[in-house]
Amino acid sequence: MNAVNAVNIVVVSAGLSVPSSTRLLGERLAAAATGQAPSEVPVIELRDLAVDIAHNFTSGFPAPALAAAMDAVTGADGVIVVTPVFSASYSGLFKSFFDVLGARDREALAGKPVLIAATGGTPRHSLVLEHSLRPLFAHLRAVVVPTGVYAASQDWGDKGLDARIDRAAGELAALAGALPAAGHGTVNGNGTVNGNGGAAGGDAIRVTRGGAVDDKFDARNVVPFEEQLAALRSAG
């Protein structure tokens, strides 16, 4: 797979153990998307920010480490989010981080490519991706890549997991390299991006069939988002 050059991908991991299979999955996804070694992948460990996140809820102000983590997510070209499964959903720590991020900047993830992933002990929880994570990030107006990755305990070392990682990472890399800079637009249902953050009447831009960004186009010639993604993947 060919990674997109100079794309800033950040991993947000809600793993609690050391070592963490949740972090490992995030690192593998990021390495596949960027071509970097896992040790070079920037990872935000929410376990280390748990106290700061709790204090942010009561004070309304983030501690320096939490503020730096939120800045990293806001400034990234694409984000990989990984959570362990608790009670058939994402963890409370995972949700709390994105709650304080949204409270600080409601547009933090608007139009940003996000790859959703989760780990669990059994394959029966794989639907957490569609029932919990995808709706959460759709609500935050992120561009959620089509392929999510769930890794149960028995999936590690399986070729099927490797294939899902490569497919999802390729989709993220294509979107992160083709969409506008982070925080500068929101994606509409027809595949266009509002350059003014989604306000009515704003200028629109779109990703063309060749992967370029066009800021002047005829709305009658908009390429459906699914076709844009297919073209980007084939070009990569």
Score class of each variant (00 low, 15 high):
6 A>R: 12
9 I>H: 05
16 L>P: 10
26 G>Y: 03
27 E>S: 01
28 R>G: 09
28 R>A: 10
32 A>P: 07
38 P>W: 03
42 P>H: 03
43 V>E: 06
57 F>Q: 08
58 T>H: 10
59 S>L: 00
69 A>E: 09
69 A>W: 06
73 V>M: 08
74 T>N: 11
76 A>E: 04
76 A>M: 07
79 V>A: 00
79 V>G: 03
86 F>A: 11
87 S>F: 14
92 G>H: 09
93 L>K: 05
94 F>A: 08
99 D>M: 11
103 A>N: 14
107 E>Y: 12
108 A>G: 07
113 P>Q: 03
128 V>P: 07
129 L>F: 08
138 A>G: 12
144 V>A: 00
145 V>M: 06
145 V>K: 04
149 V>M: 00
150 Y>A: 05
155 D>S: 09
156 W>E: 06
157 G>M: 09
160 G>S: 05
160 G>T: 12
162 D>T: 12
163 A>D: 09
167 R>L: 15
168 A>E: 05
172 L>E: 01
176 A>E: 01
182 A>M: 08
186 T>E: 15
190 N>E: 08
190 N>Y: 09
192 T>A: 01
194 N>A: 14
195 G>M: 15
196 N>R: 12
197 G>T: 06
198 G>F: 00
202 G>D: 15
202 G>F: 10
202 G>A: 05
202 G>T: 11
203 D>L: 13
203 D>V: 15
206 R>L: 12
217 F>S: 06
218 D>N: 13
222 V>E: 02
225 F>N: 02
226 E>I: 10
229 L>V: 13
230 A>K: 09
233 R>V: 13
236 G>Q: 15
236 G>R: 15
